[in-house]
Structures are given as C-alpha cells and as structure tokens.
C-alpha cells in the first residue's frame, strides 16, 4: 500500500495531529480494517482505543455466510465491550454485494438497534451501491462519508429526501463553497455530522469550514457534536448496553 502522509497509529498521536482544532473526541477506524483484513484490523482498532475515553470505534463488516470469525454470533456484545459504536463496509475492496441477499437478517438487526453504518463513495460504496441498499433497508441509520464536489450532491441529496435516517459527514460537504450552508438550508443541521476526514483531509480545514460557515450557532453546535451524541445515544449496541 502507498504510504499515507501524516498517518498515525495511536490515539495520542491522533489527538496531537488535531492540535489547535478543539477536536476532543473521535470515532475512529483503522486502515488495516480495509487494506489488510477485518479479522486483523478490527482487533487492531480495539486495542488502539482501549482505555482511552476520547475515542470510540467502528468495525468493518463482512458477509455473515463466509466470514464467521468476524461476524460472530456475539458480535454486538463484543462491540459493546470494546467501545465499538458503528460499522463500516467496503464491498468493492472485500468483493461482496452489500444488499439484502447477503446481509438481510444482519442489517435488519443493525437497523433495529439503530447502529450507524458508515459508507463512503471514496472507499467503493458508490451510489449504485447506496441507492439500492437504502431501498432495501429504508430505515437503516446510514452515514454517507466523504461526499464532496463533482456532482456528488446530485447523487446524495435524493437519499436525504427519501430516507430519514441518512446523515452526511460534513468534511467534504464543506469543501464546496457554500456547501454546508446549502445543506443546512435544505435539510436542517440535524442531518450533518462533523467529520475531519483525517488523515486524507485536513482537520484544520474541516474545523475552519464549520466555524466560518454562514449558519446559526445552534446549528454549528449540532453539527460539531450534538447530532453525533444524539445518534450514538439512540444506538442499542447490545441487549445489555445502551450507549449514552
């Protein structure tokens, strides 16, 4: 794999890279969850965030039929025990169909538990994947990440109209001049979650975009942390643990 500029391996290094941004908590994933393999990357992430209350994690999912070492029957209990509050999927890199045929009962349960599934067009979850997936799971809590310019809004905004539990990561929305303001005007601040896009994108740029966007202070607060706190507060990771 190519060397990524400024990549970090520990939570301490991550927050050092955030110097000056006022970012104090983060939902993290490890690139090995995509590039190496989820059975190696998921534990690597868990180990990295263990014991550090600033960090929560996302695990990568795989088809339950084939990858039983990752998709274990006690997956949700393990997630709760290891501060994993959301999921990610990389269907192109990991070569599967992210749909009801492959993930029916599993994503029904994820929907029921309101566990956010983070999907990124940048990482292979393009709109030909996203649109049918959400048609099949219309109540899935889904965060579409890394949505930027080049016509992506024309592909993304219809999802916001049709599916009430779709949210956008702000990092690339705000890359576009007036993008954040336009999204807030159209959907309200409640559909946006602050994202830094680190290490690919500059967290300082994401912060400055949010600070200087022409939106209200209450809207800024919601995007910065309020919406994320509410979303994660609704998630029932295991039957025994409800995140607050």
């Amino acid at each position: 794999m190519l060397r990524q500029h400024g990549a970090v391996t520990t939570v301490d290094e991550y927050f050092r890279a955030m110097e000056g941004t006022d970012i104090t908590r983060a939902l993290l994933w490890h690139i090995a969850q995509r590039d190496a393999a989820p059975d190696a990357g998921n534990p690597l992430l868990s180990k990295a965030i263990a014991g550090d209350e600033r960090a929560l994690g996302c695990w990568t999912i795989l088809p339950p039929q084939t990858d039983r070492d990752v998709m274990t029957p006690d997956l949700f209990e393990r997630m709760a025990a290891e501060k994993i509050v959301a999921l990610r999927a990389f269907p192109d890199m990991h070569r599967y169909q992210l749909n009801r045929v492959t993930f029916g009962p599993f994503l029904d349960e994820v929907t029921e538990r309101r566990i956010p599934l983070l999907l990124s067009p940048r990482f292979g979850c393009d709109w030909p994947v996203l649109h049918p997936l959400l048609r099949e799971f219309p109540n899935l809590t889904c965060v579409v990440c890394d949505v930027g310019v080049w016509g992506q809004d024309r592909n993304t905004w219809p999802l916001l109209v049709r599916f009430p539990n779709v949210y956008l990561d702000s990092s690339m929305v705000s890359l576009e001049a007036g993008g954040l303001e336009a999204a807030v005007r159209a959907w309200g601040a409640e559909r946006l979650l602050f994202g830094a896009g680190f290490p690919y994108h500059s967290p300082h740029a994401a912060v400055l975009d949010l600070l200087h966007a022409g939106i209200g202070e209450a809207e800024r607060e919601r995007i910065a942390w309020g919406n994320a706190a509410a979303l994660l507060g609704e998630a029932v990771i295991s039957d025994k643990v409800r995140l607050r």
């Binding site: 941004t21 310019v149 890359l175 576009e176 001049a177 993008g179 500059s202 740029a205 600070l211 966007a213």
Partner: peptide, 19 residues
C-alpha cells in the same frame, strides 16, 4: 487558489494554516 465556487476559501485557508 481554490477553484471557487468549487471549493471554499475557509477550506483552503485551513489546509494552508494547519500544514
């Protein structure tokens, strides 16, 4: 340069100043 109106000035500024 930013390609405005493609990219925002706050974004470009943030990248430069955070670099």
């Amino acid at each position: 340069g930013t390609d405005f109106p493609w990219f925002s000035h706050s974004h470009g500024l943030g990248v430069l100043l955070g670099s």
